[in-house]
Design a protein around this nucleic acid. Structure first.
Lengths: 204, 204
DNA sequence: CCGGACCCTGACCGACCGGTCAACGAAGGG
DNA sequence: CCCTTCGTTGACCGGTCGGTCAGGGTCCGG
């Protein structure tokens, strides 16, 4: 049990006993650090201090564990970010809140985030990832809509909206490759610093 | 043989017969699409139309193939980008050239780039990646130095240089996750569009 | 004609993979 | 008391993994 990382609640879509949560959070950490293929069911069982068979008592197979992690964390991310957008505020401030909330979510559910962001991005058979992609599209659509609103409000100059959205998402999605928790700027601050750079530009 | 993707020349560090190049480029494509663990030596041999044993005639083990790809492409990237920086030009233009050159390199050596960028980023034992990291540091140091020069020249306002560098690199390194070759904007143009957004800012 | 040197092969190895199965022990309701 | 349910286990399965090995073919210099 020991030092397990938090998992997003994700009530629906399966039972959430303590043991299940332990398996999910432990697996998320392993998937994030050694990859999907690099993590065996034996590794997970050993890290949980249980037998391999017990994993199959709670989950149908390895894919289901992974799918629960990625789908759950992606859905929670979108809902968390949406809940953090200040209603009625200026579009640019809402973009800033979007980025800060993403940084905070990343900081809180680091392993699940990394596992979701890293693996299977180009799996042709797209195992159980279709529903996750729906949430991912909603997340990407959200930042584009915020940018469009900022353009309509005259805060942002007319530009390639999908590309601008990708620029924002690139900065956020690449954070896990260099950011160390408990070291340097907290992730939400990094996200806000990124916003300031992107919004105002590097130019003097 | 058939449809093999180009590999950077990388003369030094091993023989470069046609067969070796075929193995390297085929492996790069497989590593990029199915990951390191997801690519077996049998897969590589089959895709090359040769026996698995022949792989071990040309390479000591799987790691050596991977190391040749990642080290070679990283080294070539740095040297390519450095050769593309306009001497004596304004620092901001040199940053723009840095980004465009990276986009062009990505477009040209797509599989090797993706294989290098995707895998083993947090391998604790860091197999044969130490020399590659030296080149990676040089690449990252280069963009930071360019930004510092732009600040000294008064083109860019004083700011967190490492963070600004990471913003630039994030945009470039995330491209492979969404950019399709032969579809949409060519990668160098994307890189330049990114520069314009980051340099001038989204703000109207 | 000989003998290396160099490409190249199929058969094989132990280890580990994801997944299955029969059964055990404790808990709890009748 | 028994019976069912549920969390839990170790032994086991076929298949695939990275890697080895002995040797076949072919070409070339002597």
């Amino acid at each position: 049990m020991a030092e397990m990382q938090a998992m997003p609640p994700e009530v629906e879509g399966g039972e959430t006993t303590e043991r299940v949560l332990q398996i999910l959070s432990t697996s998320a950490r392993l998937f994030a650090t050694t990859g999907y293929d690099g993590t065996s069911m034996r590794d997970i069982a050993l890290a949980c201090g249980i037998s391999k068979s017990l994993l199959y008592h709670h989950f149908a197979d390895k894919d289901e564990i992974f799918a629960r992690i990625t789908l759950g964390s992606t859905r929670e991310l979108v809902q968390f970010v949406e809940s953090r957008l200040p209603e009625g505020a200026a579009p640019s401030l809402r973009i800033r809140a979007f980025m800060a909330a993403t940084g905070e979510y990343f900081q809180r559910y680091r392993w699940a985030w990394i596992a979701s962001t890293t693996a299977f991005w180009n799996d042709p058979q797209q195992r159980r990832q279709t529903e996750r992609m729906l949430w991912r599209d909603r997340y990407e659509g959200l930042i584009r809509r915020l940018i469009e609103e900022a353009i309509a409000a005259g805060e942002i100059r007319p530009l390639d909206v999908p590309l601008a959205g990708r620029l924002v998402l690139s900065a956020l999605n690449w954070m896990h490759r260099w950011h160390k928790p408990d070291q340097g700027m907290p992730a939400p601050e990094v996200a806000e610093a990124y916003f300031d750079m992107i919004f105002h530009g590097l130019k003097r």
